[in-house]
């Protein structure tokens, strides 16, 4: 993508996320580093994902398509964190490299676990790990009507980087 502008200033460090926390519904949630080893667990999580919560065509609905999609995403270069409740993943956030040394971000939380603060913890942990890995530029696209998501991204330090497409594009600078 061309014409994207990143904020001039990098964001401050992210607080080291506690590995465990109690969510807004009183559930014990663990945030874990993840990756290719969790492939099957992630397939299961996305299989349970409510199709009404999909955005811009992802995650795919059929299991075979979910496998193909995760196969593309879960590479050595991508950065992944999981939110786990009772031993089962309920949320996943990921940074995927683009062709311009920047990373595209996405976050998914299962329906029953939304609006409980899990997305915020996942993203703080993800961006913290991303910064640690030396990643400077992160961007995402979000549907314009998704005000709660946009507010969350803004709280983390994302700024609008391109407002001329169907979807709103936002970007953040993690380091120099």
């Amino acid at each position: 993508m061309t014409g994207r502008t990143y904020p001039d200033e990098p964001v401050d460090s992210f607080p080291d996320p506690p590995l465990s926390f109690t969510d807004g519904e009183g559930r014990e949630i663990r945030i874990e580093r993840s990756g290719i080893d969790d492939f099957e667990e992630l397939v299961e999580m996305y299989d349970r994902f409510d199709p009404a919560d999909r955005a811009q065509g992802i995650p795919p609905v059929k299991e075979e398509a979910i496998r193909e999609w995760l196969d593309e995403l879960l590479t050595e270069e991508s950065v992944n964190v999981l939110a786990v409740h009772d031993g089962t993943p309920v949320g996943h956030a990921i940074l995927v490299p683009d062709r311009e040394e920047a990373f595209e971000l996405a976050v998914f939380v299962l329906d029953d676990y939304q609006s409980a603060g899990i997305g915020t913890r996942l993203l703080e942990a993800l961006l913290g790990y991303g910064k640690e890995a030396g990643i400077e530029h992160v961007w995402l696209t979000v549907e314009r009507w998704n005000e709660s998501a946009i507010a969350l991204y803004e709280k983390l330090g994302f700024e609008t980087s391109n407002a001329e497409s169907f979807e709103l594009e936002m970007a953040i600078r993690l380091g120099d």
Binding site: M1, A55, Q56, G57, I58, P60, W69, E72, L73, I94, V96, P97, D98, R99, E104, L105, A106, T141, S165, F166, E167
Partner: peptide, 8 residues
């Protein structure tokens, strides 16, 4: 997109 999102 790299994430697999459809970009119109």
């Amino acid at each position: 997109s790299p994430m697999g999102k459809i970009e119109l």
